[in-house]
Amino acid sequence: MKIVFKLLIAAALFLTGCTDNNPANWKLSPAFTYENMTLHGTEGKFGMIKVNGESDEPEFPVGEGRQYQVYFLERPEDFNGKRYKMAATHKDTGETVKLYEWEIDNEQSGAKFVLDRAGLWKIDVLVDDEPYTNFIVEAK
């Protein structure tokens, strides 16, 4: 029994080292088009678009709070009334910050947040505290 437990711990540590937190795996997620909008996220699953600020500024301006509209694109009937959370982890510092938390209505929600440091950020999306998706954006 002790050997099985030790093997499980070793496997968990190995898998943790192979996750997307490994800087070698960090690659900017491509934007995609959905209903004539250019979204950032995971195509066919989750997308977000900036809805305020200047049109010629980056989608994720450093140190500037912006409003975003978020869309749950997969099996929409499964999301209404659930609560989602977003958190972001900075590639270089490893710092993780809570971005937003709210309820999903009509397969969408708003979100207002700021990324306070330039560079790549991995955004994790959870639905009812269960991991749903993640993607990489760049704050400029």
Rank of each mutant, 00 (worst) to 15 (best):
R75C: 02
K91Y: 02
E77L: 15
T16L: 13
Y132D: 08
M48D: 14
T19M: 10
K140N: 13
A24I: 04
A11C: 10
F5R: 15
I9H: 08
E103S: 13
K91G: 00
S29Q: 03
E130L: 14
K140F: 10
Y71P: 02
S29Y: 01
E35D: 14
R66F: 09
V51N: 13
L73D: 05
E77I: 11
F72E: 10
L99T: 04
V127I: 14
A139K: 14
N134V: 05
L120R: 06
G53F: 02
L28C: 03
G47S: 11
W102L: 10
L13G: 07
V62N: 15
I9K: 07
M48K: 13
F79R: 06
I9M: 09
T33W: 06
T89F: 03
M1V: 09
Q69H: 10
D92G: 08
D105S: 14
P61N: 00
N52M: 11
P23Q: 13
Y34A: 14
K112I: 08
D20C: 03
D92Q: 11
N22L: 12
L120A: 04
E74D: 15
E130P: 01
F5W: 13
L73A: 03
H40S: 15
R75M: 06
G81D: 04
V127E: 08
E74K: 15
N22A: 10
K27I: 05
T96L: 00
F79Y: 12
T38P: 07
P58D: 09
K91P: 00
F46E: 04
V4G: 12
